[in-house]
Structure formats: structure tokens, C-alpha cells
């Protein structure tokens, strides 16, 4: 703390407080109470979109990484092509392809339209979840490929020498060590994933970004909702970083 509070930092902190104070005092925040319930539900949607797509994406990414690191050629190649295509095209394009493309295709297919899933498929969020999951799987697939390859082969040989079945060795030795290696990268990727969730607002999912745009449309206030958005996203990014720091500190590791 003493290192942090050097004289110039105190001045900068004072300037920061003054800027925040000026924003709070002279900008127009009168819309805030009215939109509070919507803002809270928007934050909630952003949060679960991030967590759900990250979780589903990681499951896919483990498979993609494993296929590339240890799979036979007929599995490794499609996985590699998938990762290249996802990483080579913008997420917005993928999202619109899924939403508008599948959205225009499904109503033409009778058995989908008559199925019990149709009320869900008529909404926008499944396409948002699908696009975000596929995207994060492509990026994490590359990360996991590196992580799987980085586990020392002696560990796997030891497991085999102890007579461990392959699945157990994967579950107990290979996967935990790979994830441990990839954890800092995964933390960074989760922040990136959180930062790409506002794209779903373009397909009518009402996340926090879409709430802020709604405020601008209703009240013609431009800067205040955007500043609120920036603050909210920064807070969420900070929470993710803290969570991963805590997670990393829980895993014992030996540093020389």
C-alpha cells in the first residue's frame, strides 16, 4: 500500500475522483431509477451467457484439443479446420449466419416446426448461445491442444505403467494437468468471451448492452448509458480476473 501511494498517484487519484464526481453531478442520471430492474436483468443475462457458453465451450474445446493433440488424422484434420474457420471469421458474421440462416431455414422444415422444441427455437437466445459456444470452442480448442501437448509424457507413461485404464489416466492425470497449464489463458479468454456477449444484442437478446441502447433510444441520452456500460463491463472483467487468481492460488504448484 505504501508503494502504491506515491505522490503522483495521490494526485492522479484525486483527479480520478474529481472526474467521477463531475460525471455524477453534472451528467444526467435521472433515468437510472426507472430502468434499474431492466439493468439488473440485463446484467444477469450477460453473466449467464458468459458462464454457460464458456462452460459448454470448454467441454467442446477439450474434445477438439484432444482430437488435435492425440487423435487419428481423420479426427485431427476436421478439428483443425473447424478451429481455423472459427478463428478466421468474425463472430458477428457467425452469429448472423446462424440466426438469420437457421432462422429462415427452420420454419420450412415441418418436423422441426411441429416439434416440442419449436417454442424455444423461435426465440433468439438459443442462436446466441450456439454461436458464442462454437466460437469459444474454436479458440479454446487451440489452447487445449497446446496444453495437452505440454503435459510431460513421463506422467502418462507412469500412469500406463501403473496399469491405469486409458480413461482413468485421462481423467486423473492428463486432463487436470492440461487444465492447470491452460488456466491463466482460460481466464483471459473468459474476459474476451464476456466482452463478445454484447453482440447478441444485434439479434434481439436483451442483455445489458441492449438495455443501455434502449435507454438511449427512449431518452436521447448518449454518453451516460455508455459510461454505465463501460463501468459494468470493467467490474465484471475484474471479478473474472479475481476469480481465476483465486482458482490458480488453490492449485498447489511447485515453483523453483
Amino acid at each position: 500500500m505504501k508503494d502504491f501511494l506515491k505522490p503522483h498517484r495521490i494526485v492522479m487519484l484525486v483527479i480520478a475522483v474529481l472526474i467521477v464526481g463531475w460525471c455524477a453531478y453534472s451528467m444526467n442520471w435521472s433515468w437510472l431509477p426507472k430502468y434499474m430492474p431492466k439493468i439488473v436483468s440485463g446484467i444477469w443475462i450477460t453473466c449467464w451467457l458468459t458462464v454457460l457458453t464458456m462452460g459448454l465451450g470448454m467441454v467442446l474445446a477439450v474434445m477438439l484439443g484432444l482430437a488435435q493433440a492425440a487423435g487419428p488424422a481423420w479426427l485431427a484434420w476436421p478439428a483443425k479446420v473447424y478451429c481455423s474457420v472459427i478463428r478466421g471469421t468474425p463472430l458477428l458474421l457467425q452469429l448472423w449466419l446462424l440466426y438469420f440462416g437457421l432462422g429462415s431455414l427452420f420454419p420450412q422444415i415441418p418436423w422441426i416446426k411441429d416439434s416440442a422444441l419449436w417454442p424455444i427455437l423461435r426465440q433468439a437466445w438459443p442462436y446466441g448461445v450456439l454461436a458464442l459456444t462454437m466460437s469459444v470452442a474454436g479458440y479454446e480448442g487451440e489452447v487445449m491442444r497446446g496444453a495437452f501437448k505440454g503435459v510431460p509424457s513421463g506422467q502418462l507413461e507412469a500412469a500406463r505403467a501403473m496399469g491405469m485404464p486409458r480413461l482413468t489416466a485421462f481423467r486423473r492425470i492428463w486432463l487436470p494437468q492440461a487444465i492447470h497449464r491452460a488456466l491463466p489463458t482460460i481466464g483471459g479468454e473468459m474476459v474476451l468471451q464476456m466482452k463478445s456477449t454484447p453482440l447478441v444484442a444485434t439479434i434481439t437478446v436483451v442483455d445489458i448492452y441492449s438495455v443501455a441502447k434502449r435507454v438511449t433510444q427512449d431518452t436521447f441520452i448518449v454518453y451516460e448509458p455508455l459510461l454505465l456500460l463501460a463501468v459494468i463491463y470493467m467490474a465484471l472483467a475484474g471479478l473474472i480476473v479475481l476469480f481465476f487468481r483465486w482458482l490458480e492460488s488453490r492449485i498447489p504448484s511447485r515453483t523453483a
Partner: peptide, 21 residues
């Protein structure tokens, strides 16, 4: 410190929001 604030802020806020602001 100013540069640290710049890189941290820009990397924590979604590009879409930054583009609008």
C-alpha cells in the same frame, strides 16, 4: 501510470462499447 490506465481500460471494456463511446 497513465499508459497502464489506458491499456487496462481498453482491454476490459467490450470493443463494441468502446467503438460507440
Amino acid at each position: 501510470d497513465v499508459l497502464a490506465v489506458y491499456t487496462t481500460l481498453v482491454r476490459a471494456v467490450p470493443e463494441l462499447v468502446l467503438i460507440l463511446i
